[in-house]
Design a protein around this nucleic acid. Structure first.
Lengths: 208, 208
DNA sequence: TCCTTAATGGAATTGAAGTTCCGTTAAAAT
DNA sequence: ATTTTAACGGAACTTCAATTCCATTAAGGA
């Protein structure tokens, strides 16, 4: 068979190839919004994009390949962290951004699809991990700044704080499947901040 | 076709029917451990259980039906919450129990499978929600006791505390897909407790 | 013990997802 | 403008999960 394949679309990326890619990505998102990841079929995507299904298989290989590509695209659009001069405000901005990514119609459907895809595909799981670890690293900066300003204890682990902010939201989304609201986001910020101020995010020294 | 079906196996639940059920549940778990939810097929389960696949389809309807049944069985085996007289100990017991459910070979594979199933099936999602909401309600008791003992502020929301304990563990498991360790469980307890002591889990009064 | 029928299981059928074949189209180089 | 060949796309083919059919087995009541 043709490879699942990073070879197609790289040598002549102009004109037609680019149009095909755009149409397929667009169609994939539309299908995700309407049917979710489990209802996504290569056939439907191809038809909707007005493209031969051979092409979709050749360039993306599988449903997971499609959502992985979509995720990679989102990763490149990610914005730098907030910097309002106040940790609480910055963390709130982060929480609301996560809330949006989860609940927002088109974007939310895409994220939820990638999460679903990650439960059954290594490639999608990898893309998801890379996306979030980058994002965590980026936003950890607001904690470092807060420490420098003396708002939080010396040694507070920024990455862990950022994880703690979004964890309850994803818990509701994936595990208990309760609605995720703005109030949940606000509460998460308040609780994480309380713990951080109490020094619960100060990591023990590991270096000699 | 036959219904997906709650009618079969209910009128004559003795002898053969019970044996078939036990064999199928056993085989389902084995298959989940080896191939995960996405690699679970009705065919394989039937073969492994030494049972006609018609029977599996008739009684469980789909892969999601199988894992849902498994989940329901686990729900009935759930144990009462700890009561050591010390919130920290009790919450640690909860965190370690969650950790075990996630990482333990056979049990962990089953839970992860149900979580995966829930991303693409309403029935499985419902079973998952019921399971966790029950569990949360059960363990919320340790917080109520702690409040009575004066260890935590009056009005602390037990359900929210319990959710906060496990949220970071599931976040690592499902979203960033990092290994989940005992240290993560301990940290989660420490942080949640710090926030709780600071009153961050006291819910605003809603009654007049 | 015998009878009724619930429940099972082997085998054939269906159908949709995935794959391959090969001719056609159009980038990009000359 | 011409040539080369990357990339596309229609259609036939393959594969395997899901479904249906019907004969067989054995619970549970008389």
């Amino acid at each position: 068979m043709d490879q699942p394949s990073r070879s197609a679309g790289t040598v002549r990326p102009g004109g037609r190839t680019a149009r095909v890619r755009a149409a397929v990505m667009e169609a994939t998102q539309d299908e995700l919004v309407e049917h979710g990841f489990h209802g996504l079929t290569m056939d439907q995507v191809a038809a909707r994009a007005g493209v031969g299904k051979t092409t979709v298989y050749r360039r993306w290989g599988s449903r997971a390949g499609l959502v992985t590509d979509l995720m990679t695209e989102l990763a490149n659009q990610s914005t730098p962290h907030a910097d309002t001069g106040d940790v609480e405000e910055d963390l709130r901005a982060n929480a609301l951004s996560v809330l949006g990514a989860i609940t927002d119609g088109r974007l939310g459907a895409t994220f939820q699809a990638v999460i679903a895809a990650a439960t059954c595909d290594e490639q999608a799981a990898g893309a998801l991990r890379v996306f979030y670890l980058r994002r965590i690293e980026e936003w950890a900066g607001v904690v470092d700044l807060a420490v420098k300003r003396g708002e939080l204890p010396e040694g507070t682990d920024g990455g862990e704080v950022i994880r703690a902010i979004s964890a309850p939201l994803y818990y509701r989304l994936v595990i208990t499947r309760e609605p995720v609201t703005r109030a949940d986001a606000e509460r998460s910020v308040a609780r994480t901040l309380a713990a951080a101020r109490a020094g619960a995010f100060v990591m023990p020294e590991t270096a000699p």
